[in-house]
Design a protein around this nucleic acid. Structure first.
Lengths: 136, 136
DNA sequence: GCATATCTTGCGACAGAGTCGCATCTCGGC
DNA sequence: GCCGAGATGCGACTCTGTCGCAAGATATGC
């Protein structure tokens, strides 16, 4: 972060929360946690920070098949694209990356002529244990 | 549609609009078109109908990489999953299906143990002509 | 250190998406 | 045609996200 973008107390806080979070957060959840450290932190700041980080490619936006409502979730960007597998029943989220996924990406780029900048693969279904539990 | 679900004038209208639409519609767009035929049709009815159709697997929900705002789009469900490729610059939407996509799906199911019920692959980038146009 | 131009924040107001309860209406089975 | 389950329309509401603006913080030059 150089050239006119400032590292403020608020941004430091928000970034550290996103990076430390074991699960994916949405804007409201992020705000709630941040407020525990800084009660005056505003919703608008959260959205502006998210927009900034998204813009610079530091986080990714997901919606996890809209398991609960229409929220969007955010996660620190890893070097490799991966997909999210969400269980409709228990809400578990699995992450998945593989060579086939990378290959499919390349195939799509080649056939469509697109310069791909973002990929999002989300899968919804029943996880193994919920399949057993729900043999109705 | 049997067993307690009624085919009302409103539902017939909404379903036909979704099926006839050449492009993906969001709830607001659907409402707007529907109002041309039935001015008293309400927002709530649109959402309730979408929920019903989604529930029965007759339509799919997409968000097309949030190209314009946070809307969700809907499309009549085809027999084959396919992915959407959106151009960030001109907003064009391409659809794409391939064997590799099907294979990846199977691979994910096998490795994760999930029973897959929904897949959504969305790709964002620059389409071929926008790449040429934007050689800056 | 300190001043200062510039970037950010917090706040309030706002727009839009989506949901809910309830009275009224209507579909479809008899 | 009649009737009851199921839908609709309406209004009120919550939640997400955005904007303009005054006040506050930050990095830089001195």
């Amino acid at each position: 972060m150089k050239r006119g973008v400032r590292m403020t107390r608020q941004r430091r806080l928000l970034v550290s929360i996103i990076q430390d979070s074991p699960r994916h957060l949405d804007a409201a959840g992020l705000l709630k946690i941040a407020k525990r450290e800084d009660a005056r932190l505003d919703r608008a700041t959260v959205y502006r920070t998210i927009a900034l980080l998204k813009d610079r490619g530091l986080i990714d936006e997901l919606d996890l098949m809209h398991i609960e409502g229409e929220k969007h979730y955010y996660e620190a960007k890893t070097n490799r694209d991966h997909c999210h597998i969400a269980c409709f029943r228990c809400g578990a989220i699995l992450e998945y990356a593989s060579r086939s996924f990378e290959k499919l990406k390349q195939e799509i780029a080649a056939q469509s002529g697109f310069l791909i900048r973002a990929v999002r693969l989300e899968v919804g279904g029943l996880c193994a244990s919920c399949q057993k539990a729900a043999h109705s």
